[in-house]
Design a protein around this nucleic acid. Sequence first.
RNA 1: GGGCGCGUAGCUCAGUUGGCAGAGCAACAGACUUUUAAUCUGUGGGUCGAAGGUUCGAUUCCUUCCGCGCUCACCA
Length: 546
Amino acid sequence: MNSPIEFNRQRYSKLEEIRARGIDPYPVRYDVSHPAQSILDQAEDLVESAERVSVAGRITSKRGHGKSGFAHLLDRTGRIQIYVRLDRIGSDVYEIFDELIEVGDYLGVKGAVFTTRTGETTVMVDEMELLSKSLRALPEKWHGLRDIETRYRQRYVDLVINPDVKEVFLKRSRLIRSVQRFMDGEGFVEVETPILQPLYGGALARPFKTHHQALDMPLFMRIADELYLKRLIVGGMERVYEIGHDFRNEGIDRTHNPEFTMLEFYIAYVDYRFIMDLVERLFTSVFQDVNGTLNHTYQGRSIDMTPPWPRISMLDAIREYGDVDVTRMPTAELAAVCGERGLDVDPELGRGKMIDGLFEYFVQDRLLNPTFITDYPVEISPLAKRHPDNPELTERFELFICGSEFANAFSELNDPMDQRRRFEEQVEMQRKGDGEAHAMDEDFLRAMEYGMPPTGGCGIGIDRLAMLITDSANIKDVLLFPHMRKESFDGDPGGLDGPDSPGGTGAEMENGSGEADSPDSPDGTGAELENGSGEADGLSDRASGI
RNA sequence: GGGCGCGUAGCUCAGUUGGCAGAGCAACAGACUUUUAAUCUGUGGGUCGAAGGUUCGAUUCCUUCCGCGCUCACCA
Protein backbone atom coordinates (compact mmCIF):
# COMPACT_ATOMS: atom_id res chain seq x y z
CA MET A 1 0.00 0.00 0.00
CA ASN A 2 1.25 3.46 -0.85
CA SER A 3 1.22 6.54 1.27
CA PRO A 4 -2.22 8.04 1.81
CA ILE A 5 -1.18 11.06 -0.24
CA GLU A 6 -0.58 8.97 -3.36
CA PHE A 7 -3.42 6.69 -2.53
CA ASN A 8 -6.18 9.16 -1.85
CA ARG A 9 -5.48 12.45 -3.54
CA GLN A 10 -9.08 13.52 -3.14
CA ARG A 11 -8.90 13.40 0.64
CA TYR A 12 -5.50 15.03 0.66
CA SER A 13 -6.71 17.91 -1.49
CA LYS A 14 -9.57 18.47 0.93
CA LEU A 15 -7.04 18.65 3.75
CA GLU A 16 -5.13 21.30 1.79
CA GLU A 17 -8.34 23.24 1.15
CA ILE A 18 -9.15 23.16 4.87
CA ARG A 19 -5.72 24.56 5.69
CA ALA A 20 -6.12 27.18 2.96
CA ARG A 21 -9.22 28.40 4.76
CA GLY A 22 -7.20 28.97 7.90
CA ILE A 23 -8.63 25.97 9.76
CA ASP A 24 -6.34 23.72 11.82
CA PRO A 25 -7.34 20.17 10.78
CA TYR A 26 -5.64 18.73 13.88
CA PRO A 27 -6.53 20.90 16.89
CA VAL A 28 -5.41 19.92 20.38
CA ARG A 29 -8.66 19.47 22.31
CA TYR A 30 -12.42 19.62 22.40
CA ASP A 31 -14.63 19.99 25.47
CA VAL A 32 -17.34 17.33 25.51
CA SER A 33 -20.34 17.85 27.76
CA HIS A 34 -22.23 14.69 26.86
CA PRO A 35 -20.89 11.40 25.47
CA ALA A 36 -23.18 10.04 22.74
CA GLN A 37 -24.92 7.47 24.89
CA SER A 38 -25.72 9.97 27.64
CA ILE A 39 -27.52 12.15 25.09
CA LEU A 40 -29.61 9.15 24.08
CA ASP A 41 -30.22 8.20 27.72
CA GLN A 42 -31.29 11.71 28.73
CA ALA A 43 -33.00 12.53 25.44
CA GLU A 44 -36.37 13.45 26.89
CA ASP A 45 -34.96 15.86 29.45
CA LEU A 46 -32.50 17.38 27.00
CA VAL A 47 -35.21 18.00 24.39
CA GLU A 48 -37.46 19.59 26.97
CA SER A 49 -34.79 21.80 28.57
CA ALA A 50 -33.33 22.81 25.19
CA GLU A 51 -29.95 22.49 26.87
CA ARG A 52 -27.02 22.88 24.54
CA VAL A 53 -24.77 19.81 24.47
CA SER A 54 -21.32 19.27 22.99
CA VAL A 55 -20.30 15.89 21.66
CA ALA A 56 -17.31 14.60 19.68
CA GLY A 57 -16.69 11.50 17.61
CA ARG A 58 -15.78 9.94 14.31
CA ILE A 59 -18.18 10.41 11.41
CA THR A 60 -19.46 6.98 10.38
CA SER A 61 -22.12 8.09 7.90
CA LYS A 62 -23.13 11.29 6.13
CA ARG A 63 -26.22 12.15 4.11
CA GLY A 64 -26.53 15.50 2.35
CA HIS A 65 -29.88 17.02 1.43
CA GLY A 66 -29.04 20.17 -0.44
CA LYS A 67 -28.99 22.89 2.19
CA SER A 68 -28.92 20.49 5.17
CA GLY A 69 -27.37 17.18 6.04
CA PHE A 70 -27.29 14.35 8.57
CA ALA A 71 -24.31 12.46 9.94
CA HIS A 72 -23.60 9.99 12.72
CA LEU A 73 -20.81 10.50 15.23
CA LEU A 74 -19.31 7.45 16.93
CA ASP A 75 -17.61 7.79 20.30
CA ARG A 76 -16.60 5.27 22.97
CA THR A 77 -20.14 5.10 24.32
CA GLY A 78 -22.17 4.83 21.13
CA ARG A 79 -23.49 6.60 18.10
CA ILE A 80 -25.38 9.90 17.92
CA GLN A 81 -26.97 11.55 14.89
CA ILE A 82 -26.30 15.19 14.13
CA TYR A 83 -28.25 17.51 11.83
CA VAL A 84 -26.54 20.44 10.14
CA ARG A 85 -28.61 23.16 8.46
CA LEU A 86 -27.29 26.01 6.36
CA ASP A 87 -29.76 28.47 7.88
CA ARG A 88 -28.59 27.58 11.40
CA ILE A 89 -24.87 27.38 10.99
CA GLY A 90 -24.16 29.84 8.20
CA SER A 91 -23.05 29.32 4.64
CA ASP A 92 -19.28 29.31 5.34
CA VAL A 93 -19.42 26.54 7.92
CA TYR A 94 -22.09 24.65 6.00
CA GLU A 95 -19.91 24.61 2.92
CA ILE A 96 -17.10 23.06 4.97
CA PHE A 97 -19.45 20.41 6.33
CA ASP A 98 -20.91 19.71 2.92
CA GLU A 99 -17.75 19.66 0.84
CA LEU A 100 -14.69 19.12 3.05
CA ILE A 101 -15.89 16.95 5.93
CA GLU A 102 -16.37 13.25 5.17
CA VAL A 103 -16.83 9.85 6.69
CA GLY A 104 -13.83 8.98 8.86
CA ASP A 105 -13.14 12.54 10.04
CA TYR A 106 -13.47 13.45 13.71
CA LEU A 107 -15.93 16.21 14.46
CA GLY A 108 -16.96 18.12 17.57
CA VAL A 109 -20.39 19.76 17.56
CA LYS A 110 -22.53 21.85 19.88
CA GLY A 111 -26.28 22.32 19.78
CA ALA A 112 -29.69 21.49 21.18
CA VAL A 113 -31.19 18.02 21.14
CA PHE A 114 -34.36 17.22 19.19
CA THR A 115 -36.21 14.24 17.84
CA THR A 116 -36.56 13.78 14.10
CA ARG A 117 -39.73 12.98 12.23
CA THR A 118 -38.71 9.32 12.26
CA GLY A 119 -38.02 9.38 15.98
CA GLU A 120 -34.23 9.47 16.23
CA THR A 121 -32.61 11.60 18.91
CA THR A 122 -30.43 14.12 17.09
CA VAL A 123 -28.23 17.13 17.82
CA MET A 124 -29.21 20.28 15.90
CA VAL A 125 -25.74 21.66 15.25
CA ASP A 126 -25.16 25.38 15.72
CA GLU A 127 -21.38 25.15 16.13
CA MET A 128 -18.97 22.69 14.52
CA GLU A 129 -15.25 22.00 14.75
CA LEU A 130 -13.11 19.62 12.73
CA LEU A 131 -11.06 17.61 15.24
CA SER A 132 -9.05 15.39 12.90
CA LYS A 133 -8.95 14.88 9.14
CA SER A 134 -8.88 11.27 7.91
CA LEU A 135 -6.77 10.56 4.84
CA ARG A 136 -7.94 6.99 4.27
CA ALA A 137 -11.43 5.81 3.43
CA LEU A 138 -13.03 3.50 5.97
CA PRO A 139 -14.63 0.28 4.71
CA GLU A 140 -18.20 0.74 3.52
CA LYS A 141 -20.95 0.78 6.08
CA TRP A 142 -23.16 -2.05 4.88
CA HIS A 143 -20.86 -5.04 4.43
CA GLY A 144 -18.22 -3.66 6.76
CA LEU A 145 -14.74 -5.13 7.06
CA ARG A 146 -14.79 -8.90 6.70
CA ASP A 147 -11.35 -9.77 5.42
CA ILE A 148 -9.82 -11.67 8.32
CA GLU A 149 -6.24 -10.70 7.55
CA THR A 150 -7.04 -6.99 7.36
CA ARG A 151 -9.08 -7.20 10.55
CA TYR A 152 -6.08 -8.62 12.45
CA ARG A 153 -3.43 -6.44 10.82
CA GLN A 154 -5.44 -3.22 11.04
CA ARG A 155 -7.30 -3.78 14.28
CA TYR A 156 -7.83 -0.02 14.55
CA VAL A 157 -10.12 -0.25 11.51
CA ASP A 158 -11.74 -3.44 12.74
CA LEU A 159 -12.62 -1.74 16.04
CA VAL A 160 -14.17 1.23 14.28
CA ILE A 161 -16.23 -0.84 11.87
CA ASN A 162 -17.25 -3.95 13.83
CA PRO A 163 -18.96 -3.15 17.14
CA ASP A 164 -19.01 -6.79 18.25
CA VAL A 165 -15.20 -6.85 18.08
CA LYS A 166 -15.02 -3.97 20.50
CA GLU A 167 -17.45 -5.85 22.74
CA VAL A 168 -15.12 -8.88 22.84
CA PHE A 169 -12.23 -6.78 24.08
CA LEU A 170 -14.35 -4.91 26.61
CA LYS A 171 -15.39 -8.31 27.90
CA ARG A 172 -11.79 -9.47 28.05
CA SER A 173 -10.97 -6.41 30.12
CA ARG A 174 -13.88 -7.11 32.48
CA LEU A 175 -12.71 -10.72 32.75
CA ILE A 176 -9.24 -9.72 33.92
CA ARG A 177 -10.60 -7.15 36.35
CA SER A 178 -12.94 -9.81 37.71
CA VAL A 179 -10.04 -12.22 38.25
CA GLN A 180 -8.12 -9.50 40.09
CA ARG A 181 -11.08 -8.67 42.31
CA PHE A 182 -11.50 -12.35 43.17
CA MET A 183 -7.82 -12.72 44.01
CA ASP A 184 -7.97 -9.57 46.14
CA GLY A 185 -10.78 -11.18 48.11
CA GLU A 186 -8.66 -14.26 48.73
CA GLY A 187 -5.81 -12.26 50.25
CA PHE A 188 -3.42 -12.47 47.32
CA VAL A 189 -0.68 -10.01 46.47
CA GLU A 190 -0.36 -9.24 42.76
CA VAL A 191 3.30 -9.08 41.74
CA GLU A 192 5.43 -8.49 38.67
CA THR A 193 8.42 -10.71 38.00
CA PRO A 194 11.07 -10.45 35.28
CA ILE A 195 10.16 -11.05 31.67
CA LEU A 196 13.82 -10.87 30.62
CA GLN A 197 15.55 -13.71 32.38
CA PRO A 198 19.14 -14.99 32.39
CA LEU A 199 17.69 -18.52 32.52
CA TYR A 200 14.25 -19.63 31.48
CA GLY A 201 12.17 -22.25 33.24
CA GLY A 202 8.94 -23.31 34.83
CA ALA A 203 7.72 -25.06 31.70
CA LEU A 204 9.10 -27.15 28.88
CA ALA A 205 9.15 -24.94 25.80
CA ARG A 206 11.49 -23.30 23.33
CA PRO A 207 12.30 -19.71 24.38
CA PHE A 208 12.95 -16.45 22.56
CA LYS A 209 16.51 -15.31 23.05
CA THR A 210 17.83 -11.78 23.08
CA HIS A 211 20.96 -9.93 24.13
CA HIS A 212 21.71 -7.14 26.58
CA GLN A 213 24.17 -4.70 25.00
CA ALA A 214 25.61 -2.98 28.07
CA LEU A 215 25.99 -6.17 30.08
CA ASP A 216 26.96 -8.15 26.98
CA MET A 217 24.95 -11.14 28.10
CA PRO A 218 22.23 -13.30 26.59
CA LEU A 219 18.73 -13.03 28.01
CA PHE A 220 15.61 -15.12 27.50
CA MET A 221 12.00 -14.05 27.38
CA ARG A 222 10.17 -15.95 30.08
CA ILE A 223 8.20 -19.06 29.18
CA ALA A 224 6.54 -19.17 32.62
CA ASP A 225 6.44 -17.20 35.88
CA GLU A 226 6.71 -20.24 38.10
CA LEU A 227 10.30 -20.17 39.38
CA TYR A 228 10.15 -16.49 40.37
CA LEU A 229 6.79 -16.79 42.09
CA LYS A 230 8.08 -19.75 44.10
CA ARG A 231 11.06 -17.63 45.17
CA LEU A 232 8.48 -15.20 46.58
CA ILE A 233 6.82 -18.05 48.49
CA VAL A 234 10.26 -18.77 49.97
CA GLY A 235 10.45 -15.07 50.86
CA GLY A 236 7.26 -15.33 52.87
CA MET A 237 4.78 -13.85 50.38
CA GLU A 238 2.41 -16.69 51.06
CA ARG A 239 -0.26 -15.85 48.50
CA VAL A 240 1.06 -14.39 45.26
CA TYR A 241 -0.19 -14.18 41.73
CA GLU A 242 0.87 -12.64 38.46
CA ILE A 243 -1.04 -11.98 35.26
CA GLY A 244 1.44 -11.42 32.47
CA HIS A 245 2.75 -12.43 29.11
CA ASP A 246 4.75 -15.58 28.57
CA PHE A 247 6.66 -16.13 25.33
CA ARG A 248 7.12 -19.45 23.60
CA ASN A 249 8.99 -19.87 20.38
CA GLU A 250 6.64 -22.42 18.88
CA GLY A 251 3.96 -22.85 16.26
CA ILE A 252 1.05 -20.49 15.72
CA ASP A 253 -2.46 -21.86 15.32
CA ARG A 254 -6.05 -21.41 16.40
CA THR A 255 -5.15 -21.67 20.08
CA HIS A 256 -1.50 -20.54 20.16
CA ASN A 257 0.17 -17.14 19.86
CA PRO A 258 3.92 -16.65 20.48
CA GLU A 259 3.08 -14.36 23.40
CA PHE A 260 0.09 -15.10 25.54
CA THR A 261 -1.37 -14.14 28.88
CA MET A 262 -0.98 -16.44 31.84
CA LEU A 263 -2.34 -16.26 35.35
CA GLU A 264 -0.14 -18.09 37.84
CA PHE A 265 -0.77 -18.19 41.56
CA TYR A 266 0.83 -19.92 44.55
CA ILE A 267 -0.51 -20.49 48.05
CA ALA A 268 1.55 -21.63 51.04
CA TYR A 269 0.38 -24.50 53.28
CA VAL A 270 -2.23 -25.88 50.84
CA ASP A 271 -2.32 -28.85 48.49
CA TYR A 272 -3.87 -29.41 45.08
CA ARG A 273 -7.28 -30.20 46.59
CA PHE A 274 -7.47 -26.69 47.98
CA ILE A 275 -6.41 -25.33 44.59
CA MET A 276 -9.21 -27.31 42.92
CA ASP A 277 -11.76 -25.70 45.23
CA LEU A 278 -10.31 -22.29 44.55
CA VAL A 279 -10.24 -22.75 40.75
CA GLU A 280 -13.88 -23.83 40.85
CA ARG A 281 -14.81 -20.72 42.81
CA LEU A 282 -12.65 -18.49 40.60
CA PHE A 283 -14.23 -19.69 37.35
CA THR A 284 -17.82 -19.56 38.60
CA SER A 285 -17.24 -16.13 40.14
CA VAL A 286 -15.80 -14.76 36.90
CA PHE A 287 -18.56 -16.29 34.75
CA GLN A 288 -21.26 -14.84 36.99
CA ASP A 289 -19.47 -11.51 37.00
CA VAL A 290 -18.85 -11.20 33.27
CA ASN A 291 -21.67 -13.22 31.69
CA GLY A 292 -24.22 -13.19 34.51
CA THR A 293 -24.89 -16.92 34.21
CA LEU A 294 -23.29 -20.34 34.66
CA ASN A 295 -25.06 -21.69 31.58
CA HIS A 296 -22.84 -21.06 28.64
CA THR A 297 -22.67 -21.83 24.94
CA TYR A 298 -19.31 -22.26 23.24
CA GLN A 299 -19.29 -22.71 19.46
CA GLY A 300 -22.80 -24.12 19.54
CA ARG A 301 -22.19 -26.49 22.46
CA SER A 302 -24.00 -26.02 25.75
CA ILE A 303 -21.88 -26.01 28.89
CA ASP A 304 -23.09 -26.13 32.47
CA MET A 305 -20.60 -24.43 34.77
CA THR A 306 -22.59 -25.11 37.92
CA PRO A 307 -20.37 -26.49 40.72
CA PRO A 308 -19.37 -28.88 42.08
CA TRP A 309 -17.41 -30.14 39.10
CA PRO A 310 -16.56 -33.82 38.77
CA ARG A 311 -13.09 -34.91 39.86
CA ILE A 312 -11.81 -38.07 38.21
CA SER A 313 -8.33 -39.49 38.36
CA MET A 314 -6.63 -39.91 35.02
CA LEU A 315 -6.49 -43.71 35.40
CA ASP A 316 -10.19 -43.92 36.36
CA ALA A 317 -11.11 -41.70 33.42
CA ILE A 318 -9.28 -44.01 31.01
CA ARG A 319 -11.00 -47.00 32.57
CA GLU A 320 -14.40 -45.32 32.41
CA TYR A 321 -14.25 -43.84 28.92
CA GLY A 322 -11.90 -46.31 27.24
CA ASP A 323 -12.70 -49.50 29.13
CA VAL A 324 -8.98 -50.06 29.58
CA ASP A 325 -7.38 -50.58 32.99
CA VAL A 326 -3.76 -49.45 32.81
CA THR A 327 -3.21 -49.39 36.57
CA ARG A 328 -0.84 -52.31 36.84
CA MET A 329 -0.53 -53.06 33.16
CA PRO A 330 2.98 -54.17 32.14
CA THR A 331 4.77 -51.60 29.99
CA ALA A 332 4.91 -53.91 26.97
CA GLU A 333 1.16 -54.46 27.10
CA LEU A 334 0.61 -50.71 27.51
CA ALA A 335 2.66 -50.11 24.38
CA ALA A 336 0.53 -52.69 22.56
CA VAL A 337 -2.69 -50.96 23.63
CA CYS A 338 -1.33 -47.66 22.33
CA GLY A 339 -0.28 -49.33 19.09
CA GLU A 340 -3.76 -50.77 18.55
CA ARG A 341 -5.20 -47.27 18.81
CA GLY A 342 -2.67 -45.94 16.30
CA LEU A 343 -0.96 -43.81 18.95
CA ASP A 344 2.58 -42.98 17.95
CA VAL A 345 4.14 -43.07 21.42
CA ASP A 346 7.70 -44.21 22.00
CA PRO A 347 7.75 -46.70 24.92
CA GLU A 348 11.30 -45.53 25.64
CA LEU A 349 9.84 -42.22 26.84
CA GLY A 350 8.15 -44.06 29.71
CA ARG A 351 4.69 -45.12 30.84
CA GLY A 352 3.64 -41.55 31.56
CA LYS A 353 3.61 -40.43 27.93
CA MET A 354 1.66 -43.55 26.90
CA ILE A 355 -0.94 -43.12 29.63
CA ASP A 356 -1.29 -39.46 28.70
CA GLY A 357 -1.70 -40.50 25.06
CA LEU A 358 -4.50 -42.90 25.97
CA PHE A 359 -6.17 -40.18 28.03
CA GLU A 360 -6.14 -37.83 25.08
CA TYR A 361 -7.38 -40.59 22.78
CA PHE A 362 -10.26 -41.85 24.93
CA VAL A 363 -11.25 -39.01 27.22
CA GLN A 364 -10.18 -35.45 26.53
CA ASP A 365 -12.57 -34.47 23.71
CA ARG A 366 -15.51 -35.88 25.64
CA LEU A 367 -15.03 -33.60 28.65
CA LEU A 368 -17.59 -30.95 27.76
CA ASN A 369 -18.63 -29.62 31.16
CA PRO A 370 -15.86 -28.54 33.55
CA THR A 371 -14.02 -31.62 34.83
CA PHE A 372 -10.93 -32.00 37.00
CA ILE A 373 -8.60 -34.78 35.90
CA THR A 374 -6.29 -35.66 38.80
CA ASP A 375 -3.20 -37.66 39.69
CA TYR A 376 -0.97 -37.50 36.61
CA PRO A 377 1.94 -39.90 36.04
CA VAL A 378 5.16 -38.68 37.64
CA GLU A 379 7.16 -38.88 34.39
CA ILE A 380 5.13 -36.09 32.80
CA SER A 381 4.92 -33.96 35.97
CA PRO A 382 8.48 -33.00 36.88
CA LEU A 383 7.54 -30.10 39.17
CA ALA A 384 4.78 -31.85 41.14
CA LYS A 385 4.95 -33.72 44.41
CA ARG A 386 4.53 -37.49 44.34
CA HIS A 387 1.18 -38.86 45.48
CA PRO A 388 1.52 -40.34 49.00
CA ASP A 389 -0.67 -43.32 48.00
CA ASN A 390 1.16 -44.13 44.79
CA PRO A 391 4.71 -42.96 44.02
CA GLU A 392 4.13 -43.41 40.27
CA LEU A 393 1.54 -40.63 40.38
CA THR A 394 1.65 -36.98 41.43
CA GLU A 395 -0.64 -34.56 43.21
CA ARG A 396 -1.51 -32.76 40.03
CA PHE A 397 -4.72 -31.85 38.24
CA GLU A 398 -5.81 -30.24 35.03
CA LEU A 399 -9.19 -28.62 34.38
CA PHE A 400 -10.90 -29.44 31.09
CA ILE A 401 -13.82 -27.59 29.52
CA CYS A 402 -15.06 -28.29 26.01
CA GLY A 403 -12.16 -30.68 25.50
CA SER A 404 -9.56 -27.99 26.17
CA GLU A 405 -7.21 -27.57 29.10
CA PHE A 406 -7.87 -24.49 31.22
CA ALA A 407 -5.79 -24.99 34.35
CA ASN A 408 -2.74 -26.99 35.36
CA ALA A 409 -1.92 -27.25 39.05
CA PHE A 410 0.15 -29.20 41.56
CA SER A 411 1.07 -29.67 45.09
CA GLU A 412 4.45 -28.08 44.41
CA LEU A 413 7.68 -29.98 44.78
CA ASN A 414 9.58 -28.35 47.65
CA ASP A 415 12.29 -30.96 48.36
CA PRO A 416 15.50 -29.22 47.23
CA MET A 417 17.43 -32.48 46.83
CA ASP A 418 14.68 -34.01 44.67
CA GLN A 419 14.45 -30.77 42.68
CA ARG A 420 18.19 -30.84 42.01
CA ARG A 421 17.95 -34.45 40.78
CA ARG A 422 15.12 -33.50 38.43
CA PHE A 423 17.12 -30.58 37.04
CA GLU A 424 20.06 -32.90 36.52
CA GLU A 425 17.84 -35.24 34.54
CA GLN A 426 16.73 -32.27 32.41
CA VAL A 427 20.33 -31.23 31.80
CA GLU A 428 21.04 -34.76 30.67
CA MET A 429 18.08 -34.53 28.26
CA GLN A 430 19.44 -31.23 27.00
CA ARG A 431 22.83 -32.83 26.41
CA LYS A 432 21.04 -35.45 24.33
CA GLY A 433 19.65 -32.68 22.16
CA ASP A 434 16.25 -31.94 23.70
CA GLY A 435 15.78 -28.27 22.82
CA GLU A 436 12.96 -27.88 25.31
CA ALA A 437 14.63 -29.40 28.36
CA HIS A 438 14.93 -27.40 31.55
CA ALA A 439 18.20 -25.69 32.42
CA MET A 440 19.89 -26.03 35.83
CA ASP A 441 18.88 -23.00 37.91
CA GLU A 442 21.29 -22.74 40.84
CA ASP A 443 19.68 -19.63 42.32
CA PHE A 444 16.28 -21.30 42.34
CA LEU A 445 17.81 -24.35 44.06
CA ARG A 446 19.45 -22.06 46.61
CA ALA A 447 16.03 -20.58 47.36
CA MET A 448 14.59 -24.10 47.76
CA GLU A 449 17.42 -24.97 50.11
CA TYR A 450 16.48 -22.08 52.40
CA GLY A 451 13.13 -23.84 52.64
CA MET A 452 9.82 -23.49 50.83
CA PRO A 453 6.65 -24.34 52.77
CA PRO A 454 4.20 -26.87 51.38
CA THR A 455 2.61 -24.98 48.51
CA GLY A 456 -0.15 -25.37 46.00
CA GLY A 457 0.27 -23.63 42.62
CA CYS A 458 -1.72 -23.19 39.44
CA GLY A 459 -1.47 -21.76 35.93
CA ILE A 460 -4.48 -20.62 33.91
CA GLY A 461 -4.35 -19.48 30.28
CA ILE A 462 -6.22 -16.20 30.22
CA ASP A 463 -6.56 -16.11 26.43
CA ARG A 464 -8.25 -19.52 26.46
CA LEU A 465 -10.57 -18.31 29.17
CA ALA A 466 -11.31 -15.19 27.13
CA MET A 467 -12.06 -17.38 24.10
CA LEU A 468 -14.46 -19.49 26.14
CA ILE A 469 -16.25 -16.60 27.76
CA THR A 470 -16.59 -14.58 24.51
CA ASP A 471 -17.42 -17.67 22.41
CA SER A 472 -14.44 -17.02 20.11
CA ALA A 473 -13.09 -19.82 17.91
CA ASN A 474 -9.61 -18.36 17.33
CA ILE A 475 -7.15 -16.97 19.86
CA LYS A 476 -6.52 -14.08 17.43
CA ASP A 477 -10.09 -12.96 18.08
CA VAL A 478 -9.26 -12.25 21.73
CA LEU A 479 -5.84 -10.68 21.07
CA LEU A 480 -5.94 -7.02 20.04
CA PHE A 481 -2.79 -7.37 17.98
CA PRO A 482 -2.19 -11.05 17.20
CA HIS A 483 1.17 -12.04 15.78
CA MET A 484 1.26 -11.97 11.99
CA ARG A 485 3.99 -12.54 9.45
CA LYS A 486 5.72 -9.47 8.14
CA GLU A 487 3.54 -7.45 5.81
CA SER A 488 5.05 -6.13 2.60
CA PHE A 489 4.32 -2.57 1.55
CA ASP A 490 4.40 -1.63 -2.14
CA GLY A 491 7.20 0.75 -2.99
CA ASP A 492 8.57 0.32 0.50
CA PRO A 493 9.53 -3.33 0.83
CA GLY A 494 11.51 -2.61 3.98
CA GLY A 495 8.61 -0.81 5.57
CA LEU A 496 8.60 -2.92 8.69
CA ASP A 497 12.36 -3.34 8.65
CA GLY A 498 13.01 0.27 9.49
CA PRO A 499 14.60 -0.29 12.87
CA ASP A 500 17.00 -3.00 11.77
CA SER A 501 17.67 -1.95 8.21
CA PRO A 502 21.39 -1.70 7.48
CA GLY A 503 21.19 1.81 6.08
CA GLY A 504 20.30 3.28 9.43
CA THR A 505 20.67 6.96 10.15
CA GLY A 506 23.28 8.33 12.45
CA ALA A 507 20.72 8.56 15.20
CA GLU A 508 20.04 4.86 14.92
CA MET A 509 23.65 4.07 15.59
CA GLU A 510 23.66 5.69 19.01
CA ASN A 511 22.48 2.50 20.64
CA GLY A 512 24.81 0.45 18.54
CA SER A 513 22.12 -1.02 16.36
CA GLY A 514 23.90 -2.44 13.36
CA GLU A 515 26.74 -4.82 13.99
CA ALA A 516 27.48 -7.20 16.84
CA ASP A 517 23.86 -7.80 17.68
CA SER A 518 22.84 -11.35 18.46
CA PRO A 519 25.97 -12.83 16.92
CA ASP A 520 24.70 -16.38 17.19
CA SER A 521 21.46 -15.88 15.35
CA PRO A 522 20.97 -16.22 11.65
CA ASP A 523 18.74 -13.45 10.37
CA GLY A 524 15.11 -14.14 9.75
CA THR A 525 14.65 -17.16 11.98
CA GLY A 526 12.31 -15.17 14.12
CA ALA A 527 13.90 -16.80 17.12
CA GLU A 528 15.88 -13.78 18.13
CA LEU A 529 14.85 -10.30 19.11
CA GLU A 530 16.71 -7.49 17.52
CA ASN A 531 18.08 -4.84 19.78
CA GLY A 532 19.27 -1.29 19.49
CA SER A 533 16.29 -0.50 17.37
CA GLY A 534 15.44 2.75 15.68
CA GLU A 535 12.19 2.80 17.56
CA ALA A 536 14.02 3.16 20.84
CA ASP A 537 15.89 6.08 19.34
CA GLY A 538 12.62 7.57 18.26
CA LEU A 539 11.52 7.52 21.87
CA SER A 540 14.68 9.21 23.08
CA ASP A 541 14.30 11.81 20.35
CA ARG A 542 10.82 12.50 21.60
CA ALA A 543 12.02 12.72 25.19
CA SER A 544 14.74 15.21 24.32
CA GLY A 545 12.25 17.21 22.30
CA ILE A 546 10.18 17.70 25.41
C1' G B 1 7.01 -28.00 9.04
C1' G B 2 2.99 -31.44 6.13
C1' G B 3 -2.04 -31.48 3.66
C1' C B 4 -6.38 -28.69 1.71
C1' G B 5 -8.41 -23.91 0.33
C1' C B 6 -8.26 -18.66 -0.68
C1' G B 7 -5.91 -13.71 -2.72
C1' U B 8 -10.05 -9.38 -8.64
C1' A B 9 -11.56 -1.34 -7.45
C1' G B 10 -11.11 1.97 -0.86
C1' C B 11 -14.93 -2.09 1.11
C1' U B 12 -18.20 -6.53 -0.03
C1' C B 13 -18.18 -9.72 -4.01
C1' A B 14 -19.26 -11.47 -9.34
C1' G B 15 -16.60 -13.05 -13.78
C1' U B 16 -13.37 -14.84 -17.78
C1' U B 17 -14.42 -23.42 -21.00
C1' G B 18 -7.49 -18.45 -22.51
C1' G B 19 -9.74 -13.07 -26.49
C1' C B 20 -11.09 -4.89 -24.51
C1' A B 21 -12.25 -6.25 -16.44
C1' G B 22 -17.96 -6.11 -13.80
C1' A B 23 -21.84 -4.83 -9.87
C1' G B 24 -23.33 -2.63 -5.19
C1' C B 25 -21.50 0.60 -1.54
C1' A B 26 -17.64 4.40 -0.99
C1' A B 27 -15.41 8.64 -4.00
C1' C B 28 -16.16 12.77 -7.64
C1' A B 29 -19.89 16.47 -10.38
C1' G B 30 -25.06 18.05 -10.13
C1' A B 31 -30.41 18.19 -7.75
C1' C B 32 -32.79 17.89 -3.03
C1' U B 33 -33.80 21.75 4.37
C1' U B 34 -36.19 15.79 9.23
C1' U B 35 -32.72 11.60 6.30
C1' U B 36 -31.00 7.02 8.28
C1' A B 37 -28.31 0.98 3.57
C1' A B 38 -31.62 8.55 2.05
C1' U B 39 -33.21 9.22 -3.17
C1' C B 40 -32.41 10.80 -8.44
C1' U B 41 -28.87 12.01 -12.81
C1' G B 42 -23.92 11.68 -14.49
C1' U B 43 -18.36 10.56 -13.96
C1' G B 44 -13.69 8.63 -12.58
C1' G B 45 -11.41 4.41 -10.35
C1' G B 46 -7.68 -2.00 -11.50
C1' U B 47 0.15 -4.27 -12.21
C1' C B 48 -6.86 -9.35 -11.25
C1' G B 49 -1.04 -10.99 -4.42
C1' A B 50 4.46 -11.21 -6.80
C1' A B 51 7.93 -13.34 -10.29
C1' G B 52 8.82 -16.75 -14.09
C1' G B 53 6.85 -20.39 -17.92
C1' U B 54 3.37 -22.26 -21.91
C1' U B 55 0.61 -19.49 -25.78
C1' C B 56 -0.58 -15.34 -31.41
C1' G B 57 -2.72 -13.74 -26.73
C1' A B 58 -2.60 -15.29 -19.42
C1' U B 59 -6.39 -12.19 -14.42
C1' U B 60 -7.74 -17.43 -16.27
C1' C B 61 -3.37 -22.99 -17.53
C1' C B 62 1.70 -24.59 -15.22
C1' U B 63 5.96 -23.61 -11.67
C1' U B 64 8.06 -20.96 -7.69
C1' C B 65 7.49 -17.35 -4.00
C1' C B 66 4.57 -14.04 -0.49
C1' G B 67 0.29 -13.54 2.69
C1' C B 68 -4.22 -15.44 5.12
C1' G B 69 -7.64 -19.40 6.74
C1' C B 70 -8.72 -24.54 8.02
C1' U B 71 -6.32 -29.01 9.42
C1' C B 72 -2.31 -32.59 11.31
C1' A B 73 2.03 -32.72 14.39
C1' C B 74 4.18 -29.69 19.20
C1' C B 75 2.49 -26.73 22.99
C1' A B 76 -1.15 -23.36 26.97
